[in-house]
Design a protein around this nucleic acid. Structure first.
Lengths: 343, 343
DNA sequence: TTGAAAGCGATACCAG
DNA sequence: CTGGTATCGCTTTCAA
């Protein structure tokens, strides 16, 4: 791995000239020196030493993806195909732009930011940040920062976020169920006091229920299960015994849980959708890998990743951002887990 | 973010002394200077600048995970929970050791190695490297390098690898099926000429078939389907019509495909395990998320990740490695996808 | 149009 | 025991 100095020597020019060629400061340069240096650069297989770059305060070409798992800390979290698809798509975008991706699961905002400083990171993509943590990040760094799927407590209009029409998704679910003749519907979540995407999905759902004057009480028809597999499945079994008779349809904020319920119900002889309809959210691999296949709301994770990186690049290049909070469209995908009720 | 020089100034010592404190060269140092510097380091929240470190040829604290997708390039690859579990576990280990992880999906070995040089990477973990590519890596770098799940074409004894008792896994499958009274068994793969883990799994399977003198011809009883979802499912449906009657059990080299077959068969009214038994491999989330749940061979991905990082650290610290090719144990997990046949 | 030199932050050697 | 100084590779400013 040759250095700039060595290249310069071979080319018979000074290191500055080589540096200029590399960095494209090439407007007032004689074409033949340019050509000569470029040729040697290529032929010697020059790779710029990142240590030098960093130190000289040139860009580090480093983007860090910070993932903060708030719950589902167990294997679930990491086995969730949403994460791997996101990571994969992000990495690809970043690499194709000539950047490198550091993956960092955050224990604390402070720690994350220390490492951002240490590495002179050019941009941060933050996934799974809790609303109350966002401002910690914003206050303590001026590095370009893009949130993914985040809803903010306050001052959110200053943050750049790539999210989803979560509320609309919830509405789609409710509209579809009502259209299919369902009138007694429950919503199940893994969090007593939902926030972020789950809260929005629920909100949209409730909006439509209200609009159509269908009975739904967030006290009686909203149920909370555990994110831990064993407890969750026990809960579903219990639910089947004690509450299921009250409903014709059950809604979930993710396919992961919806698929789990379908399986658990099957194990105890509850037929989906004959005895109860189930609706998921995300349209990830679990939706089509489950039988019956889930009716669900589709989101395009790869698109989300691409947009996040593009937005970040705009910030890095100091371009103005017209749309700070992007909400990608959602779409209802009708499959087999919802039964049409007799009117 | 203060620099060493600034810390030195505040402490009233020289930069060298501060550096010595940071790097633990502290044996011949007066305890009070040590204490003083340490205090200021903490109070000023010192974070060492990685550019400086890199340039001074101190460790970069960088580990790169290179993932080479050979096939299943589509969403499957990246949605495969194996990858996310591996990535997650690797990141955690690496971070806890005070290192940082760069994630890089490789287009070519050369490109990967250029970036390894540029960043002064301390260690490489290589997942999914095809046998014929391994030596490219080995020949062109002296950076510590650990392979995951790799079988080598030749000279493999020089490589450090963390793998699985794949062959034993194949044996377990065959033994179990035979024990359950199956005599007509097919093996299905997504590759005409399997290599790596798939080849070993198949080999182990065939060994046992031969040992028990049960008919299995790699010409007639070995089937190749496509890794593309649509084509694959079409293939399975066709298979059900034309070949299924010849077998009582079907073996796969991954839960991903086994679960897919279970679902596809269900769609066309083929009952698993009543009409045919199915066996998977990996015991990942698809195995227990599928109905009937899959009988399969368990591997511990997290353990694999931990071992890989530990082995890499040994190499980085120049410690001798007693075991170059580690094969983690496998275990048969009996669930519901294999029927006991009448003898 | 090109080059010399300073400086970025951390380390290590050697002198005191 | 501590500090001065050269060094790593690259960028940038300014002078020629």
């Amino acid at each position: 791995m040759p250095t700039i100095k060595e290249i310069a020597e071979i080319a018979g020019v000074s290191p500055s000239t080589v540096s200029n060629v590399i960095n494209g400061h090439t407007n007032k340069m004689r074409p033949d020196t340019l050509a000569k240096v470029q040729k040697i650069l290529k032929q010697e297989n020059y790779v710029s030493n990142m240590g030098g770059r960093l130190l000289a305060k040139n860009g580090s070409r480093l983007i860090v993806l910070i993932m903060t798992y708030t719950r589902r800390e167990e294997k679930n979290a990491v086995q969730d195909p949403f994460f791997s698809e996101l990571i994969g798509a992000l990495e690809q975008e970043i690499r194709e732009l000539g950047y490198f991706m550091i993956l960092y699961t955050s224990s604390s905002a402070e720690e994350s930011l220390r490492m951002v400083d240490a590495w002179n990171v050019e941009g941060i993509i933050l996934q799974g940040c809790a609303p109350w943590d966002c401002s910690t990040y914003m206050k303590n760094t001026h590095i370009p920062l893009v949130f993914i799927d985040t809803y903010f407590e306050e001052g959110g209009e200053k943050f750049i976020n790539i999210g989803l029409e979560d509320k609309r998704g919830g509405e789609l679910v409710a509209e579809h169920l009502i259209e299919q003749g369902h009138k007694r519907i429950a919503f199940l979540l893994d969090e007593q006091y939902p926030f972020g995407v789950d809260a929005e999905r629920l909100k949209g759902f409730m909006n439509i229920m209200k609009k159509h004057e269908i009975q739904f009480s967030s006290k009686d028809d909203f149920y909370v299960f555990s994110y831990r597999k064993k407890e969750r499945e026990a809960y579903f079994k219990e639910f089947a015994k004690t509450h299921l008779h009250k409903y014709t349809a059950l809604c979930f904020a993710s396919d992961f849980y919806a698929a789990d319920v379908v399986n658990t119900f099957r194990d105890i002889g509850v037929d989906v959708p004959e005895q109860v309809s189930i609706c998921g959210f995300d349209d990830n691999i679990f939706a089509s890998t489950c039988r019956p296949m889930l009716t669900t709301v589709r989101q395009d994770v790869t698109e989300k990743a691409k947009l996040a990186v593009n937005r970040l690049m705009q910030m890095i290049r100091n371009e103005p951002i017209e749309e700070k909070d992007t909400k990608l469209p959602v779409e209802l995908v009708v499959r087999d887990s919802i039964k049409r009720m007799k009117q």
